[in-house]
């Protein structure tokens, strides 16, 4: 590399930093600042009526996994908390799987349309974003409730005699989240499939590969970054979902988001709430790390 080239590169790096400075400042002040407060609060003592007392304590962090039995004073594994964590992770994984199962054929369909039509199909995918999340969730509620659209139609058609009860169950939360997050799966999948060279398909068939083999050995490895990006985009917000479990789940079975809210409200244990928020953040970061690992491997198959 010549000295001229080097100085040119340095200049472009500096300009890059300068250009991104406003965004970085905003990120630091608006994201890291509040996060630091949350981190500090997680190491304090809860106040009598909410808020915190400025005394160092690890109780918030210990309280994530362990709980002192209020009646006999022994410390046990916090069964209630683990149930909530497990429900959140399970529902988020299920949501990711379902959105993939629905999103992959959709994205494939869009990517294989003539270029002039693709914009229209993509535009249709983004339409749900025009409406507020809360309103979309209430709309789902209207469809699946006992006397809602789905049950009325099914009963009217004589297919069932008793309404199918979905509302206020984990299934309702699952359906709601899959509906809400589906576009987040379709868009990155489309981006990946769009770049896919269809000639590779013909090459695969020419080499006597079956349709399934082409899917497994040709398509999936190449669109893998899109699959991972889509899965992350769905999994992360699902894990912290608050509105959907609250509206569709009927509030009976909490997810992590609702559990954190409880600590800042009626639970009056802000440090535990703060520690739970940080724990959620750590889970999300772990998921992102796996993503970065997996996607760099995918882009660089020959080492």
């Amino acid at each position: 590399m010549s000295p001229a080239e080097q100085s040119q590169r340095r200049k472009s790096t500096r300009n890059g930093w300068l250009l991104s400075a406003p965004a970085l400042t905003l990120l630091f002040l608006a994201a890291s600042g509040p996060l630091l407060i949350v981190l500090v609060y997680s190491f304090l003592t809860p106040g009598q009526y909410g808020n915190v007392v400025w005394e160092f304590s690890l109780d918030g962090w210990v309280g994530i996994l362990f709980t002192r039995d209020i009646f006999d004073g022994t410390t046990n594994l916090a069964d209630a908390h683990l149930t909530i964590f497990w429900r959140s992770v399970k529902l988020s994984l299920m949501t990711t799987a379902l959105t993939f199962a629905l999103g992959f054929p959709t994205a494939w369909f869009i990517a294989t349309r003539p270029p002039a039509q693709r914009a229209m199909w993509l535009f249709l995918i983004t339409i749900p974003f025009w409406t507020n999340l809360l309103i979309r969730t209430f709309a789902i509620n209207e469809v699946i409730r006992n006397e809602g659209l789905m049950n009325t139609v099914l009963i009217g058609a004589g297919l069932i005699s008793e309404p199918i009860r979905i509302i206020n169950t984990d299934t309702a939360v699952f359906i709601g989240m899959a509906y809400v997050y589906l576009p987040l799966m379709v868009l990155p999948l489309f981006a990946a499939i769009d770049r896919f060279d269809m000639k590779l398909l013909e090459a695969g068939y020419d080499l006597y590969a079956s349709r399934l083999q082409v899917l497994r050995h040709v398509i999936l490895p190449i669109v893998k970054p899109g699959i991972i990006a889509g899965s992350i985009l769905v999994f992360v917000p699902s894990l912290g979902a608050y509105v959907t479990p609250r509206v569709l789940g009927g509030g009976k079975n909490m997810m992590i988001g609702n559990f954190i809210e409880l600590q800042f409200g009626q639970g009056r244990n802000w440090p535990l709430g703060a520690a739970l928020s940080m724990a959620l953040l750590l889970i999300v970061m772990a998921a992102l790390l796996i993503y970065v690992r997996a996607s760099t491997k995918g882009n660089n198959p020959h080492g």
Binding site: N253, L262, Q266, G267, N269
Partner: peptide
């Protein structure tokens, strides 16, 4: 009292899990 409140919160968490 704060003690009573803690009892209630513990029962509540167990109820809402």
């Amino acid at each position: 009292s704060p003690t009573a409140q803690q009892y209630m919160a513990a029962i509540w968490t167990e109820l809402m899990k």
